[in-house]
C-alpha cells in the first residue's frame, strides 16, 4: 500500500479552493499527524487520501493496483462518528461482515476490540444512545477490528475524558506497533508530541511544512508554523 504519494493535489468546492496543490510522500511505519487551524483542510485531505472525495486535479497514488484491495486495506474514524441503530456489538459485527470476514471469526474479534477499548459492559446497549465519547470509542473499535494497513483518525480523542484519552492513545500505539500506518489529526499539541513521528502542517489548504515531530516542535521552519505553535495563528 505505502508509500502514499500526493502530487499537486487540489480540491475545490465550487469556487472555493479547499486543498491547494499539495505534494508529498507518506511512508510506511510512521505515525503521521496532520496539524493546522480549524478549516485548514485537514479532514478534507484525509477524505481525499481515503478515496471518499475525488480530487479536482492532481493525484493520490497508493502502491496497490487493485481497487478493492486498496479500499479494504484502509479504515477511517470520522470526526463526527456515525454509529448504526443497533447494538454496540452489532455495529462491529456489521463492519466485519462488510469486510468479508468469515462468520465464525467475527464475534471473537468484535468482543476482543470492545474489550480493548473498555466497552465490553456496553456491548448489548443500543449504540445511538451512547454518549459522544462512547460513540467515538466504538468507532475506533470498529475501525480497529478491520485490521487495516492504514488507519485514518480524524480527531479521535476530541470528545474524550482524560482517562479515555490515555486509553485511546495506548490503543493507537498498539495499532501502530502491530504494523499499521497511522494518519491522524489532533488539536492537542501534547498528543501530537506523544503519538507522532512526523507532522504535516496545513494552513489554508496548503501543506506548509512536513517535518519530524522533534524538528517541528523544536525549530519550525516557517513563520506560520511558529505562530501556530504559539497560539497566534488566526
Amino acid at each position: 500500500m505505502l508509500p502514499l504519494i500526493l502530487e499537486n493535489l487540489c480540491f475545490s468546492a465550487g469556487e472555493r479552493e479547499i486543498i491547494r496543490s499539495i505534494s508529498c510522500e507518506i511512508t510506511a511505519g510512521t505515525r503521521t499527524i496532520i496539524l493546522g487551524p480549524n478549516g485548514a483542510g485537514k479532514s478534507v485531505l484525509m477524505r481525499l487520501c481515503h478515496g471518499l472525495l475525488t480530487p479536482t486535479s492532481g493525484r493520490v497514488t497508493w502502491q496497490e493496483a487493485d481497487a478493492a484491495r486498496r479500499a479494504r486495506a484502509q479504515a477511517m474514524v470520522f470526526q463526527r462518528p456515525i454509529v448504526l441503530r443497533r447494538s454496540v456489538l452489532a455495529n462491529v459485527l456489521y463492519a466485519l461482515k462488510l469486510a468479508g470476514v468469515a462468520a465464525g471469526e467475527r464475534r471473537p474479534r468484535a468482543e476482543n476490540v470492545l474489550d480493548a477499548v473498555g466497552m465490553s459492559a456496553l456491548a448489548d446497549r443500543p449504540a445511538r444512545v451512547l454518549s459522544g465519547g462512547e460513540q467515538q470509542r466504538l468507532a475506533l473499535a470498529r475501525a480497529w477490528a478491520l485490521r487495516p494497513e492504514v488507519l485514518f483518525l480524524d480527531e479521535p480523542t476530541a470528545n474524550l475524558d482524560p482517562a479515555a484519552t490515555r486509553n485511546i492513545e495506548a490503543i493507537i500505539g498498539a495499532i501502530h506497533d502491530s504494523g499499521a500506518k497511522i494518519m491522524m489529526t489532533t488539536h492537542s499539541l501534547g498528543q501530537a508530541r506523544r503519538l507522532g513521528d512526523e507532522i504535516l502542517f496545513l494552513n489554508a489548504g496548503r501543506l506548509v511544512e512536513q517535518a519530524s515531530v522533534d524538528e517541528f516542535f523544536r525549530q519550525p521552519r516557517t513563520p506560520e508554523a511558529a505562530a501556530f505553535l504559539h497560539g497566534e495563528l488566526p
Binding site: 481515503h50 479500499a71 479494504r72 477511517m76 456515525i82 448504526l84 441503530r85 469486510a99
Partner: peptide, 26 residues
C-alpha cells in the same frame, strides 16, 4: 446524507447501503 461517508468507508455497495438504511430507519 448522514451515513454516506461512513458506509462507503466501510465498503458498502449500493445494495448493502439500501438494506442497512432500510433497517436503520425502520
Amino acid at each position: 446524507f448522514e451515513y454516506e461517508e461512513q458506509l462507503r468507508s466501510l465498503g458498502a455497495g449500493t445494495m448493502d447501503a439500501a438494506l442497512t438504511l432500510l433497517w436503520d430507519t425502520r
